[in-house]
């Protein structure tokens, strides 16, 4: 629970990426993957540019890690993929059913997210793929509510503009960006009370019980249109994984 600030620190990177995506006319959903306390990979939604409905942030992040693993010397007796058991994901929006399943199949450790995804969330909003009985040896815990309002505002900002790629674009002229009203956060859709207490601390239990956010204030620095430089995150993603040897070329 003393770690909450550390988790928020990683989520800030994910939000910066989402803000960057927003300014590139993509759905503002983004993520970072963290291994041994370091950002090792990132992803942003790219469904418009790629002409594909499945190029979600999580997949792009996994692909970066996977190509890094290809260039590593495997430790004898340990499968490459086992490294995911020590990797956490910070994503601005709850993973969709597809990504929730992908994260499970790849064996992620934990997932931390901002807001839920009521249209196709796979960690509790629509289905609970992370806790179902398929490939259950890889079930993982998923913690919502980390900078939730900021994640929602970025999405609202995007959806006040039209998605001209849809077959029948919906006119959204009259929509305005609301920054003061938020739906309740139904924590129990995503985690049980015990897990909440263990992670956020018993002093925050009021939030769980009353379906409230942890913070009242909105961090406007995160949402600032200047806050879109992601060079540091890209640089970290280009580095080899910490503590593993690069494969010698023979």
């Amino acid at each position: 629970m003393a770690d909450l600030e550390r988790h928020k620190g990683f989520m800030k990177y994910a939000l910066k990426l989402a803000n960057n995506a927003l300014h590139n006319n993509e759905v503002p959903v983004a993520c970072v993957f963290v291994y041994k306390n370091q950002v090792i990979s990132y992803g942003m939604n790219n469904t418009n540019d790629s002409l594909s409905g499945i190029t979600h942030a999580e997949f792009r992040g996994i692909n970066i890690i996977w190509s890094k693993l290809q260039s590593m010397t495997p430790t004898p007796g340990i499968a490459l993929q086992d490294i995911f058991k020590e990797i956490d994901l910070y994503v601005t929006v709850e993973p969709c059913v597809m990504c929730a399943s992908a994260l499970k199949q790849i064996g992620i450790r934990n997932v931390y997210f901002g807001c839920g995804n009521e249209r196709f969330g796979g960690n509790g909003s629509c289905l609970k793929i992370n806790q179902d009985s398929t490939t259950s040896e890889n079930n993982y815990k998923s913690y919502p509510g980390i900078y939730r309002k900021e994640a929602i505002i970025l999405l609202r900002d995007f959806y006040t503009h039209e998605n001209t790629k849809a077959p029948v674009p919906k006119e959204k002229k009259n929509r305005i960006l609301k920054k003061d009203e938020f739906p309740p956060l139904i924590w129990s859709n995503y985690i049980n009370e015990m897990d909440f207490k263990n992670f956020f601390g018993v002093d925050k239990l009021w939030a769980f019980e009353q379906n409230l956010d942890l913070d009242d204030e909105i961090n406007n620095d995160i949402l600032d249109s200047q806050n879109i430089n992601i060079d540091d995150i890209i640089e970290w993603s280009n580095q080899p994984l910490p503590g593993l040897n690069k494969r010698r070329k023979t």
Binding site: G53, I54, C96, V97, M98, F120, G122
Partner: peptide, 13 residues
């Protein structure tokens, strides 16, 4: 298909 692929097909319309 598994849940990942099934949802990918939903996303793909």
């Amino acid at each position: 298909p598994c849940s990942m692929c099934s949802m990918a097909l939903i996303h793909s319309r």
